[in-house]
């Protein structure tokens, strides 16, 4: 076989391998607080914001702290690097991305899952009559 073709195939295979490895590595797995605590790895945890428990923004550290209950009903303090996410009050559930630290879950990102547009609409349409 042509040497050029072989080189091309090798380069291609290496590139694809790197791509696949990258893909696996950067795909943050879903977990609950228990597994997050045990593994200590970066995971994403889905849950609901405990509105009754304290939450607030620490201006000095620029961190937003709140309490979140995961699907196993475990409540955990979550410290987010940054301000309160948009739509936080409206969210029916939130997803925190980060890792467990000694007494809290340290999140680098919190995504909010908002009620499907059309569920809220029937209510909204009555309000605008």
């Amino acid at each position: 076989m042509n040497i050029k073709v072989i080189v091309a195939i090798v380069v291609l295979a290496a590139g694809l391998m790197l791509g696949v490895m990258n893909f696996m590595e950067s795909n943050v797995e879903y977990a609950d607080f228990n597994t997050a605590e045990q593994s200590g790895r970066k995971v994403q945890v889905k849950g609901v914001w405990m509105k009754d428990l304290e939450s607030g923004f620490n201006a000095e550290k620029a961190q937003f702290t709140f309490y979140m209950k995961d699907d196993n009903q475990r409540i955990m303090k979550v410290v987010l690097e940054g301000a309160k996410p948009n739509n936080f009050e409206l969210a029916e559930s939130v997803v925190a991305k980060g890792r467990h630290e000694s007494d809290h879950f340290h999140a680098t990102e919190v995504l909010t899952k908002c009620p499907s547009k059309y569920e809220g609409d029937a209510e909204a349409v009555k309000n605008t009559l």
Binding site: L18, G19, N22, F23, E25, S26, N27, V28, E29, Y30
Partner: peptide
């Protein structure tokens, strides 16, 4: 592939998850 990650992970793991920004930078 990165953008389709939620589809790929749904098929492979049953739960959709997106790739981190670092994936795009590294590739």
């Amino acid at each position: 592939i990165g953008t389709s990650s939620p589809i790929i992970t749904t098929i492979a793991k049953g739960k959709a998850s997106a790739v981190e920004m670092s994936y795009y930078v590294k590739t």
